[in-house]
Amino acid sequence: MTDFLSFAVEYLPEILAALPVTLGLWVLAMILGFTLGLLLATGRLYGNRVVYGLSTAYVEIFRGTPMLVQMFFIYLGLPEIGIVLDPFLAAFVAIGMNSAAYQAEYFRGAVRSVPPGQMMAARAIGMTRMEGFRSIVLPQAMRRVIPQWTNEAILELKYTSIAYAIGVSEITARAEKIGNTTFQFFDVFLLLAVIYVILTGIVAQVLQIVESRTAIPGVNR
């Protein structure tokens, strides 16, 4: 135990030096996933046949293939047709586009769980479908999606580790490198695991607070 602690004290700064890369990748990918996911959900809910078809195909393709394969495709495959992305950008696009497929489904489910009478009442006072969606349905759907979105955020935070496979120097890559020089794989990956648990714990806590702060008074969840 004391061995592990002294190891941790020695190598923690080195791993944490890569934390901005991990967190940056995560935040950017979540933003991409959120924006694209919302568009896809809207396309699947309200789009005409073409938009619905395209959104559905997107979701099925990105949910149906491993994220690692998607990332290799983007990083190693796309250069063959002239699209060259640096490792960080490729990882960001892969994780973000993958997350979009899942977030789209969470948003769609949340929108559909809003009682239909809400939109009806919005239409009845003279709102267009768009106004009703924006002012009435979406604010309620967003609250309902927080628990699932928390899961997704935690999942994606851990998934940033696959960027290691295309040479992004995030915390997993850094830990592996330390292992290769010290041969203390047990200690280094234990330390890495502790770091991930603390990070995901913080995310869960923060989103828990968001959830209770935005809860509709009088509604038990």
Binding site: P115, G117, Q118, M120, A121, A122, R123, A124, I125, G126, M127, T128, I136, P139, Q140, R143, I216, V219
Partner: peptide, 20 residues
């Protein structure tokens, strides 16, 4: 219709107040 609905208001059986 959207303009006319502002002049023809509707009260629902199950209220449909905006929950949020």
């Amino acid at each position: 219709v959207n303009r006319m609905r502002q002049r023809i208001a509707f009260v629902f059986q199950d209220f449909n107040l905006f929950l949020h």
